[in-house]
Deep mutational scan, measured.
Amino acid sequence: RQGFVPAAYVKKLDSGTGKELVLALYDYQEKSPREVTMKKGDILTLLNSTNKDWWKVEVN
Results as ranks from 00 to 15, higher is better:
Leu21Ala: 06
Pro6Glu: 02
Asn51Ser: 10
Lys12Thr: 07
Leu46Arg: 01
Asp27Ala: 06
Lys31Asp: 06
Pro33Asp: 13
Asp53Arg: 13
Lys56Val: 14
Glu20Leu: 12
Asn51His: 11
Arg1Cys: 08
Lys12Glu: 06
Trp54Cys: 06
Leu44Asp: 00
Thr17Gly: 15
Ala8Pro: 08
Trp54Val: 02
Gly16Asn: 14
Asn60Arg: 12
Leu25Asp: 01
Glu35Cys: 06
Lys19Arg: 14
Lys56Leu: 15
Ala7Val: 07
Lys19Gly: 09
Phe4Glu: 03
Thr45Arg: 13
Tyr28Trp: 10
Asp42Val: 04
Lys11Arg: 12
Val22His: 04
Gly3Gln: 01
Thr37Arg: 07
Pro33Tyr: 08
Phe4Ala: 02
Met38Leu: 09
Leu44Ala: 06
Glu58Asp: 04
Arg1Leu: 07
Ile43Ser: 03
Lys39Ala: 09
Ile43Cys: 06
Ala7Ser: 13
Ala8Trp: 10
Tyr9His: 08
Thr17Pro: 14
Glu58Gln: 10
Leu23Arg: 09
Gln2Asn: 08
Val57Tyr: 00
Leu46Tyr: 02
Asp14Ala: 12
Ala7Gly: 05
Asp27Phe: 04
Asp53Glu: 12
Ser49Asp: 15
Trp55Asp: 01
Leu47Ile: 14
Leu47Phe: 02
Met38Gln: 01
Lys39Glu: 06
Leu46Pro: 01
Lys40Pro: 03
Lys12Asp: 04
Tyr28Cys: 02
Leu13Val: 11
Val22Asn: 01
Asp42Ile: 04
Lys39Cys: 10
Ser15Thr: 15
Val10Ala: 03
Leu23Asn: 02
Val36Tyr: 04
Leu47Asp: 01
Glu58Asn: 04
Gly41Leu: 03
Gly41Val: 02
Ala7Gln: 05
Asn60Thr: 13
Gln29Leu: 13
Tyr26Arg: 15
Glu20Met: 12
Leu21Glu: 08
Val5Glu: 00
Leu44Trp: 03
Leu21Pro: 02
Glu35Asp: 05
Tyr9Val: 07
Ser32Val: 04
Gln29Gly: 07
Glu30Leu: 08
Val5Pro: 02
Val36Met: 10
Asp14His: 13
Lys19Ala: 11
Leu13Glu: 04
Thr50Val: 09
Thr17Asp: 14
Glu58Trp: 05
Val22Met: 04
Tyr28Thr: 00
Asn48His: 06
Val36Phe: 11
Leu47Pro: 01
Lys12Tyr: 09
Lys12Asn: 06
Gly41Lys: 01
Leu23Gly: 03
Ser32Glu: 08
Leu21Gly: 03
Thr37Trp: 04
Gly18Asp: 13
Ala7Lys: 07
Tyr28Asn: 00
Pro33Ile: 09
Trp54Pro: 00
Gln29Thr: 15
Glu30Trp: 05
Thr45Trp: 12
Arg1Val: 08
Val36Lys: 02
Lys39Pro: 01
Ala24Tyr: 01
Thr45Ser: 08
Trp55His: 03
Leu25Ile: 10
Glu30His: 09
Val59Gly: 07
Thr17Tyr: 14
Val57Ser: 00
Ala24Trp: 01
Tyr9Leu: 15
Thr17Glu: 14
Lys52Thr: 11
Glu30Phe: 07
Asp14Gly: 15
Thr50Gln: 13
Lys19Pro: 14
Glu30Ala: 15
Ala8Tyr: 09
Lys52Trp: 06
Asp27Leu: 02
Tyr9Met: 14
Pro6Gly: 02
Leu21His: 09
Gly41Pro: 00
Lys31Val: 08
Lys40Phe: 05
Val59Asn: 10
Thr45Leu: 15
Glu30Cys: 14
Arg34Leu: 14
Gly41Glu: 02
Thr45Gly: 09
Leu25Tyr: 04
Asn51Ile: 06
Thr50Lys: 11
Val59Gln: 14
Glu20Asn: 15
Leu46Phe: 03
Ser49Val: 07
Phe4Thr: 03
Val36Ser: 02
Phe4Leu: 09
Tyr26Leu: 10
Gly16Thr: 15
Val36Gly: 02
Tyr9Gln: 07
Ile43Glu: 03
Ser32Ala: 08
Ser49Ala: 13
Lys31Ala: 10
Gln2Thr: 12
Trp55Glu: 01
Leu46Asp: 00
Asp42His: 05
Thr17Ala: 14
Val57His: 00
Leu23Lys: 08
Ile43Gln: 04
Val5Thr: 01
Ser15Gln: 12
Arg34Phe: 13
Ala7Met: 04
Thr50Ile: 08
Asp14Ile: 12
Thr45Asn: 09
Asp14Lys: 12
Val59Glu: 09
Lys52Asn: 12
Gly18Ile: 10
Arg1Ala: 07
Arg1Gln: 08
Leu46Ser: 01
Tyr9Pro: 02
Leu44Gln: 00
Leu23Ala: 05
Ser15Leu: 14
Lys39Gln: 09
Pro6Gln: 02
Asp14Trp: 11
Leu25Pro: 00
Met38Thr: 04
Phe4Val: 07
Leu46Glu: 01
Val10Phe: 05
Ala8Asn: 13
Gln29Lys: 14
Pro33Lys: 11
Glu30Asp: 05
Pro33Val: 09
Glu20Thr: 14
Asp14Phe: 12
Lys56His: 10
Lys31Tyr: 05
Phe4His: 05
Tyr26Ala: 12
Asn60Leu: 14
Thr17Asn: 14
Gln29Pro: 06
Thr45Met: 10
Thr45Tyr: 12
Val59Arg: 11
Met38Tyr: 01
Val59Ser: 12
Asn51Pro: 05
Gln29Ile: 14
Thr17Val: 13
Tyr9Ala: 13
Asp14Ser: 12
Tyr28Ile: 01
Leu44Pro: 00
Tyr28Ala: 00
Leu13Lys: 03
Arg34Met: 13
Arg1Asp: 04
Lys40Cys: 07
Val57Met: 01
Gln2Ser: 11
Pro33Gly: 08
Asn60His: 13
Lys39Ser: 09
Tyr28Arg: 02
Val5Ala: 03
Ile43Asn: 03
Leu13Phe: 11
Asn51Gln: 09
Asn51Tyr: 07
Tyr28Leu: 01
Gln2Ile: 13
Ser32Leu: 08
Leu25Phe: 03
Tyr28Met: 01
Thr37Phe: 04
Lys12Ile: 11
Lys40Trp: 04
Val59His: 14
Arg34Lys: 12
Lys11Asp: 07
Glu35His: 06
Ser15Lys: 10
Gly16Tyr: 12
Val5Tyr: 00
Pro6Phe: 05
Lys19Ser: 10
Gly3Phe: 08
Lys52Gly: 09
Arg1Met: 07
Tyr26His: 12
Glu35Arg: 05
Leu21Val: 09
Ala8Met: 12
Leu44Gly: 05
Asp53Phe: 15
Glu20Tyr: 10
Val57Gln: 00
Glu35Val: 05
Gly16Gln: 14
Lys11Ile: 13
Val59Lys: 12
Val59Phe: 09
Met38Val: 10
Gln29Asp: 15
